[in-house]
Design a protein around this nucleic acid. Sequence first.
DNA 1: CCTTCTAACTAAACCGGTTTAGTAAGTCAT
DNA 2: ATGACTTACTAAACCGGTTTAGTTAGAAGG
Lengths: 334, 334
Amino acid sequence: MKKITMQDVALKAGVSKSTVSQYINSRFEFMGVSTKHRVEAAIKELGYIPNHVAKSLKQKKTGTIGVIVANILHTFSTEIIRAIEDECERNGFHLFVCNADDQPEKERSYIDMLVAKQVDGLIIFPTNGNNDYYKQLKTAEFPIVFVDRIINEPIFPTLLLDNESASQIAVDQLAKKGRTKIGLVSTSIVQKVTPRIERIMGYKKALESHGLAIEEDWIVAEQREEIGSRLQRLWDSGNRPEAFFATNDLALIELLKFIKKNKLVIPKDIGVIAIDDSPFLEMATTPISVIKQPTFEIGQNAADTLLQLIVSKDFKEEYEERRYRPILVERESI
Amino acid sequence: MKKITMQDVALKAGVSKSTVSQYINSRFEFMGVSTKHRVEAAIKELGYIPNHVAKSLKQKKTGTIGVIVANILHTFSTEIIRAIEDECERNGFHLFVCNADDQPEKERSYIDMLVAKQVDGLIIFPTNGNNDYYKQLKTAEFPIVFVDRIINEPIFPTLLLDNESASQIAVDQLAKKGRTKIGLVSTSIVQKVTPRIERIMGYKKALESHGLAIEEDWIVAEQREEIGSRLQRLWDSGNRPEAFFATNDLALIELLKFIKKNKLVIPKDIGVIAIDDSPFLEMATTPISVIKQPTFEIGQNAADTLLQLIVSKDFKEEYEERRYRPILVERESI
DNA sequence: CCTTCTAACTAAACCGGTTTAGTAAGTCAT
DNA sequence: ATGACTTACTAAACCGGTTTAGTTAGAAGG
């Protein structure tokens, strides 16, 4: 069935398609009342829906934003995306969301695809393996905002948690409750992912700030599937921490599985604190204390920063990273 | 900075843009080797990225699919979307995902926006308030697949859980453990959302199949924010069920909050079973038994069905709804 | 009555890639 | 030598909406 175009509407209304375009775009300054009514009636009768592809070609903008997430399984990622979505909606933009699974090749092919689709800008949680390509896009003055991770050069606005501060809060809380033997659980740092590296660094600094020794054996930083067995070996060795600090939600899940498997009671047998929250942690038998990221604020600011870049085209040589303060949610697990 | 086009590449390579287009589309049958190499070198030197907007205008297809979710807070929705994404990716399509928040007006405006953006098809979890518009799209032979909910006429392929069967399994499990006083918790049925209606119907039929009376007071079907207080009133009345069946994950969260607030012990003081799962339910102190939907299969089939419609253009007058068997995950909460 | 200005509307070029009919040169068979 | 066929390449129309310079008719002022 043939698609209705402006030409069809124009014929029906007895005007030119330029007039129909003026109507569609609410430009009524120089339009007779009778013309307006006839165009309106023709649109309604024919059920005309504009074709934004044609409009985008001419205007060189699509009203879409690409978001490339490094790992969508992290709850905070989806929360940040929700905030980006809401802010973009408010400004007439829509999102393509892609999940790179922490793989630079996947990220690269997504960037190519999104640029080809003429997205107006990109928000990327960078994997850390496409630095040369990022620079090319910088040279081409393509609007990009980074979130959650830093790359080697500050070429795009970057928004992320104050990770070391989050670790400091975690260790402070455990120390406040008298815990002096504190272990850490993380997902793998092989890829040098900013939050993981910085949170471990923050944990070490925080221990030192409390005059506590750093026990390297108590730092579990593995692929997710290997965390459980590594914790088991640590536990079975007999040299055990009194509490664990999980640096993200996926590490926390593996920690809780380990705790359940060993029939440990929180916080009697083991204290727990984590970075990033989940609805279920509040209603667990022992509600888990966490340090949240202000995900809504980060997402909203990321969207606003990108929209500002898109509109202003005011590209700087360098940008300062923007850090967000973590938020303690004190529950009962420490 | 000026965007590189095929014309620029053509000039650089000393060929026409038709030749460049042939190269880009890997049509080498009638292309000299020397021409091929010159075009290849020009593309690399200029860093040319094709403009899919122009291509879409001419070819009248965009390689994008719109997904409109009725309520994205349900975990199963995001699981189905993940499966749709994977299947679409495999076939060179990408998604716009929109959240209608169970509001027909929002759904309507999203449909308009996505059609204007020339998506190739739509997967909708229908809100139930745009039936006339759905019919218009049917008449226009626009490819659509419905998921999770049914509307008044079977005009598009529809994939959803066998909800009554899921309720039957839930009641069977509770009855098997000797529970004869079974309550139900649901989110609101005011909007006549298919799964909620069918699951309550299934619960009633299942009770009857076990010769158990239907206690209307034990059916809590409210707006999410009101479930807790309604459960409290029910509990305080003294006429209490022995177990609760939560018909979805959001109802379960409210039920678990109520249980925690009243310091009840699962399953000693109260049995719990629910439809839809979550990673945390497995590692709760009392792991919660659930009936899962085969979300991966539903999502994959929805994507395949839509892609098939897009390619074949073989629109039928009516479609039979496709039901999926629920999957029991027996844990320790009953 | 003539000139100038304004209101209302329109023709056609453009956005960038696709596609198809057309062109030119070379090869092969008669 | 000529005609038919094939290879390799290209010109230009097209997709649908935007936009701008141009046109026409009417009004107002001298």
